[in-house]
């Protein structure tokens, strides 16, 4: 393909990314480094701050007067357990919302909606967790992660301290993200990488692989060119980005295992129907 066409594709995917995803990497990094004019995020680092911040989880705008609320008293252990479950449910509803954002992004990839509808479902089902992990990375640093559109920062130690298996879900994602963030991709690079992941022709059960591979090949060319122009000093960046796809598959396998464990041990837990569809029979 002509270089000009590949640049148009990169621009188109970047625009779609900006349109569909509410928190960009640029904004997340500004919040994490304190270089934003907005208020600093509310920090959740223990059960008390979780109880205080709980009602604002998944709010796009944190009410100003509520940010400095204090003294909720000690949380009893049974209440703690409920609090963990409620927090997990709100994570699920944000994840379901993110699934719909990713679906809209996928539909904007040129040629995607012309694929067999069953194959569109398969690509999204198998690519979704990988895409969500990549999208989570810019929100993370070694100490924690932004949630609720960047309104809240939750510490890694606190997440780790949640009762099993809740405490185990995020740790491998933190390990991956810290390494992935070292590649220093920006939002325009991320848009291309997400499209490459979605257009994986080796997902189980695909009916018509060839047109998917053709689409992916085109996005790969576009990403290779874009990375060279956007990061002229970063050697082998294209290859390094592609290598991350292997790590992603392992992360998904771990995620599925933990979710399975939850299903068995947490009788009170009810998985969001959209997430159930994605998780069911996944590997």
């Amino acid at each position: 393909p002509e270089a000009a066409d590949l640049r148009v594709l990169a621009k188109h995917l970047y625009e779609s990314y900006l349109k569909n995803f509410p928190l960009t990497k640029a904004k997340a990094r500004a919040i994490l480094s304190g270089k934003t004019s907005d208020n600093a995020p509310f920090v959740i680092h223990d059960m008390k701050s979780l109880a205080e911040g709980e009602q604002f989880i998944n709010c796009r705008q944190l009410p100003r007067q509520e940010q400095r609320r204090t003294s909720m008293g000690l949380i009893q252990s049974e209440l703690q357990s409920e609090l963990e479950l409620r927090f997990f449910r709100s994570c699920q509803s944000r994840s379901a919302e993110a699934v719909s954002e990713v679906t809209e992004f996928a539909k904007s990839i040129p040629g995607f909606v012309n694929l067999d509808l069953n194959d569109q479902v398969t690509l999204l089902k198998y690519g979704m967790i990988e895409v969500l992990i990549i999208m989570m990375s810019p929100l993370m640093n070694k100490d924690g992660t932004l949630i609720s559109y960047g309104q809240i920062f939750m510490t890694r130690e606190f997440i780790k301290s949640l009762r099993k298996p809740f405490g185990e879900i995020m740790e491998p994602k933190f390990e991956f993200s810290v390494k992935f963030n070292m590649l220093e991709l920006d939002d325009s690079d991320m848009a291309l990488f997400l499209a490459v992941i979605i257009l994986s022709g080796d997902r189980p059960g695909l009916l018509n692989v060839k047109p998917i591979e053709v689409l992916q090949e085109n996005v790969l060319h576009s990403m290779e060119l874009h990375l060279k122009m956007n990061h002229p000093d970063s050697l082998q960046l294209f290859a390094k980005v592609l290598q991350k796809m292997t790590d992603l598959r392992q992360l998904v396998a771990h995620h599925v295992q933990v979710m399975q464990l939850m299903k068995e041990t947490e009788i009170d837990m009810c998985l969001h129907p959209l997430l159930q569809e994605i998780m069911k029979d996944l590997y």
Binding site: T103, K107, V113, L117, Q120, V121, P273, E277
Partner: peptide, 21 residues
């Protein structure tokens, strides 16, 4: 496959519906 993934299918066919979320 479409039958087992009704919400995903619906999201693919229509624009985002808050009802599903």
């Amino acid at each position: 496959l479409k039958e087992k993934h009704k919400i995903l299918h619906r999201l693919l066919q229509n624009s985002t519906s808050p009802v599903d979320l």
